[in-house]
Design a protein around this nucleic acid. Structure first.
Lengths: 203, 203
DNA sequence: ATTTAAATGTTGACTGTGTCCACATATTAA
DNA sequence: TTAATATGTGGACACAGTCAACATTTAAAT
């Protein structure tokens, strides 16, 4: 089993190559730039070979989206657990910043992840699953806040959805360039601060 | 000039018919369901006739998106000015609820409006314009709040973007069914309440 | 080791779609 | 009435997704 020789009939690990190349093409040209044919050509395989590994284009994109969520979850967890000496509510704020920074660092990939056009989560249980875990990561942080005496009057789930909404919305508005600003980082700081201060008030 | 006879060579008002039929098709089958050919056929005109009125599909969709934003702005203004006896911060909250309700009442249309795939705002100045006015509508409300002594320590624009982000994010998460809940209205109430209470604290 | 089955890859072909071009017809202006 | 303009039509092309039938390689079974 050759892993990536050039002339062999079998590619070796086409599935992985497809995932990687798709990610690359998305980064370079956006989701619209991804075509099954282009993908195959770039990898050096015939146009229908990908269908041995993914039922169709949607399934391939869903797999890439899933990986994206897994990356996002890692980032969030990292922000959450990075510095346990910090007040949980501050770590929560940093988590929000991490979220948005992750999104705008790879705008086209983030768009794919939540892009109902390409990936209908309801059709892809694995995507559904990682989406759920994304929210869970926020809720975990909220539990810590509650344990420290914050957010006493709220249900964790409600707060989680609120913060998720704000992060998601801000990410997309930034990615789509709907917010005409020059200092992106400053805006992220201000927005997350407004949210954090608001939540902090509810001790 | 016949306005909508069936057999005449000229349609009469194809431009308007295109906008309306596009809206319908979006409502029925989503943006993906819209094809130039299908549109033309449904209206009873040849497949290339639409190109006399819109440069291409993107331009047509952009025009529909623009109308969508104008509708949204109307709704927001309505919520803002409906009951001037109410505390501005409460009207602000109602405005947020209106936003999300508008979005989920026409999910596919809302997706189009913000769907970078179909409509890249940066390519369509008219869309850029209505998007800006959407934020302005929120900021207007925030000014009223400030005049009543709320939100003293914040810049209106920052608060506007924060609330817009939350509304937009919540709308999309609901539309894409990422939030697995049974009572949508209750969630909207809870989220907008959390945001309002948070802002209210900052007198 | 030989045969068989399964996995993987290839080419051809079909469909649907956006859109250009040249031409036709209707409407408006000169 | 004629000329110019706006609007609508059909042919044609390129691109994309994907099915079906066939080829080749690898793995499993005897």
């Amino acid at each position: 089993m050759s892993t990536s020789d050039s002339k062999s009939y079998h590619h070796g690990d086409l599935r992985q190559a497809l995932l990687e190349t798709t990610r690359q093409m998305i980064a370079e040209e956006g989701v619209e730039g991804v075509t099954m044919r282009g993908l195959a050509q770039r990898i050096g395989v015939s146009r229908t070979a990908p269908y041995r590994h993914f039922e169709n284009k949607a399934a391939l994109l869903a797999a890439v989206a899933q990986e994206g969520f897994e990356e996002l979850i890692k980032h969030l967890r990292c922000a959450r657990t990075a510095d346990p000496t910090l007040s949980p509510i501050i770590r929560f704020e940093k988590m929000g910043m991490s979220y948005v920074q992750f999104a705008i660092a790879q705008p086209t990939a983030y768009r794919l992840m939540y892009g109902a056009d390409a990936v209908r989560a309801e059709d892809h249980p694995e995507v559904r699953e990682v989406v759920r875990r994304t929210l869970d990561e926020l809720i975990e942080m909220i539990q810590e806040c509650k344990a420290a005496g914050f957010l006493k009057t709220y249900h964790p789930r409600d707060v989680g959805m609120t913060v998720w909404s704000a992060c998601h919305g801000l990410s997309l508005l930034l990615i789509d360039q709907h917010l005409q600003i020059d200092n992106v980082d400053q805006l992220i700081e201000r927005v997350t601060r407004i949210v954090r201060v608001g939540l902090e008030g509810e001790r």
